[in-house]
């Protein structure tokens, strides 16, 4: 089988198509990015830097980092465990399990927040119990962590499952036969084979965890200095017409998006063979 090679544009239609693609990308993707930078630096550099002196913004950044630091390891554990179970063993209900792991992708972020209010909110399933024992879940850190977990749950698993499925079990079976322990097999054979895909998944998971807005917004209660994450701080600042503050904080997240895309692109070029097939260019 031969594939059609990419060619240099020759005819007018070729140029028209390429120019339209550039025009659309400029209008839909680049313009919003420019707008963030423009509005953040509207008052000059000193005003922009004041954003980082704002204690509310810094508290929000700290909370965002804390939530990410809790969610990431849990997602790594879940991602590896689920990929191990699904690709290394046969069991009943595997297909259903796979669809359930994918489910959070198709949920509205608001619904991903709502479900936790229905569980732990004042009138939720466990509302009275939590109130009686003075435990805060909603409008507090645990709620934010749970909402972020639900939203990010598929990210690592989705990268590992197709790759480990492709790789097969031959090497691992050989190692076990030769007497290697389970942990040895994992750390010396499986992990080296999946490390770039794992990094890829962790990267996407981290970007989403730090940027999640809808789900966190529902469970957070927007308490300044306490339950405002960085995206929520942006909303509050924007609604208070603090344009420079909102866009200034947004530049941190834009920077994060750029780093994510850059590492992602490098992984796709450099380690294409060690990622799941859907990311091989």
């Amino acid at each position: 089988m031969r594939r059609k090679a990419a060619k240099r544009p020759e005819k007018l239609t070729d140029y028209t198509l390429i120019i339209f693609a550039f025009f659309w990308m400029a209008l839909i993707i680049f313009l919003p990015l420019m707008s963030v930078l423009f509005n953040a630096f509207k008052g000059g550099l000193p005003k922009y830097l004041e954003t980082f002196a704002d204690p509310d913004a810094m508290d929000a950044l700290k909370l965002t980092l804390l939530v990410t630091a809790i969610v990431l390891p849990l997602n790594i554990i879940f991602g590896i465990a689920s990929a191990w179970a699904i690709t290394r063993f046969e069991f009943v209900g595997k297909t259903i399990l796979l669809s359930i792991i994918d489910l959070p992708f198709s949920l509205s972020p608001v619904i991903s927040g709502l479900v936790w209010v229905l569980m732990f909110g004042a009138q939720g399933w466990f509302g009275e119990f939590l109130q009686a024992h003075d435990i805060d879940v909603i409008y507090a850190l645990p709620g934010i962590v749970l909402a972020t977990l639900l939203v990010t749950l598929p990210f690592v698993a989705r990268e590992l499952i197709p790759l480990m499925d492709d790789n097969g079990t031959d090497e691992e079976v050989a190692a076990v036969t030769l007497g290697a322990s389970g942990w040895d097999v994992f750390f010396r054979i499986t992990l080296p084979n999946i490390k770039w895909a794992l990094l890829y998944g962790v990267l996407l998971c981290m970007a989403r965890a730090m940027g999640e807005f809808g789900a966190v917004s529902v469970v957070s209660g927007h308490i300044r200095g306490l339950t405002n994450t960085l995206p929520l701080h942006i909303e509050v600042a924007y609604n208070e017409y603090n344009t420079i503050g909102a866009f200034g904080a947004a530049t941190i997240l834009v920077g994060l998006a750029f780093v994510t895309l850059a590492i992602k692109t490098i992984l796709e070029w450099r380690y294409a063979d060690e990622l799941s097939a859907q990311h091989r260019h």
């Binding site: 993707i29 940027g211 995206p231 942006i234 998006a257 750029f258 692109t265 260019h281």
Partner: peptide, 18 residues
């Protein structure tokens, strides 16, 4: 090609205000 994924990578609140 890399920038196609920007709407995935950019937090929604940022795209929203922009």
């Amino acid at each position: 090609d890399a920038f196609i994924d920007m709407p995935f990578a950019l937090p929604t609140a940022v795209s929203g205000i922009a």
